[in-house]
Design a protein around this nucleic acid. Sequence first.
DNA 1: TGCAACGATTCAAACGTTTGTTTGATATAT
DNA 2: ATATATCAAACAAACGTTTGAATCGTTGCA
Lengths: 214, 214
Amino acid sequence: MEYNAKQIQIIEVAERLFAQKGFAGTSVRDIAQAADVNVSMISYYFGSKEKLIEALFQIRMTESRSRLETLITNAELVPMQKINLLIDSVIDRLTGNQCFHNIMMRETLSSERNAAISEHIMNLKMRNIELMQQLIREGQAAGVFRDDIDMSLMTTTLYGTVNYAIASQDFYKKINNLEHMDQAEFLNHLKGKLSQHLKSLFKSTVTNEHHNQN
Amino acid sequence: MEYNAKQIQIIEVAERLFAQKGFAGTSVRDIAQAADVNVSMISYYFGSKEKLIEALFQIRMTESRSRLETLITNAELVPMQKINLLIDSVIDRLTGNQCFHNIMMRETLSSERNAAISEHIMNLKMRNIELMQQLIREGQAAGVFRDDIDMSLMTTTLYGTVNYAIASQDFYKKINNLEHMDQAEFLNHLKGKLSQHLKSLFKSTVTNEHHNQN
DNA sequence: TGCAACGATTCAAACGTTTGTTTGATATAT
DNA sequence: ATATATCAAACAAACGTTTGAATCGTTGCA
């Protein structure tokens, strides 16, 4: 499915509004006005509001497909370097697509799920955890990673931390007295801090050195 | 502000529905039907749908106030034990009030914020981070914690991990082949895993031993 | 070049529902 | 008898979607 310029314009505006106010909280008239098109264009191009958000997911999901996989699997790096690469990649991906990941988080929080969207999210998570699994196994085979790593909880910490940091960035700004920064400057700062934090967190937990039971 | 039995019934039903479908996605008629009361009772008792969710926040926030503070500050425990107590307390609080924290997460993700609710959330986060700050300072004064701990990112990892784990519990269940468990059994399992995971994560990162720069 | 014909696009208006809230009559309890 | 609680019904506004006429850009033929 390819989309013309006007359709993409509508999708991008809808993405921003869905992130700001939620799917149910955004009316098709809101979207039409912000995208500067007639209300009926949304039904005309997408069929319905529901199909519009499905189109958004379809686009963003195919965009992200296999961007990282080859980079990580092919690089000739030691396992810990690959983990660090993965961490930075997740930080970049989530900070670079805040609106979409905001929407995805909202969908994850919902019980009444759109089937098509649920499957998109499920597929993405499967890919992510398989990638992580592969990296961990590599490190274990090389003898530098511990054998008792809880994979799904490591990914939970990775995505959970970055997601939560982005969601409460206003609070983080206030707490750390960074309100003087503009958005781009602040985001760079946050990315650097997150990268440093998560890398040191993962290093201490994942490597064999200095391992002691609690 | 005290509420009678019927009001509490309405609030609890609303909490469940807001968590399942979002605030905007839940109609007052949904709530009235699920709570088995007439539609007009919501306006009658709370004034409006907006005031209803504010009442929910007011109740849940005052409930949680100063439950933990005294427990932690007064206990005669070593700093690391206090941190572990904090971790378990956060896990208990978030798993025990999934609906409410789901709603709070949704509010955090929103840009168009209700002022009263924003302030409740801000106050809660302030209390949480001050508590963490106090514990960390104690450990540093005792010489067992590192001096360069990023407080706000540690809390981000703590809350982010637990929140994300709860939000994607269905996925976690599927990944770890735990679909045979009933909800209570699974939740216990998840709490145990989270506790173990976060404690080991914090221990390696926070303590002075084996510290090496990356 | 001129023009008819065509499908794709755009629009204001209207459609039928659903929304949050109010009303006014009735029931219950103190 | 007085205040509180409950209800079906009605309210205007907002909702997602459809309609049908108007406009646009391209193509085929004279």
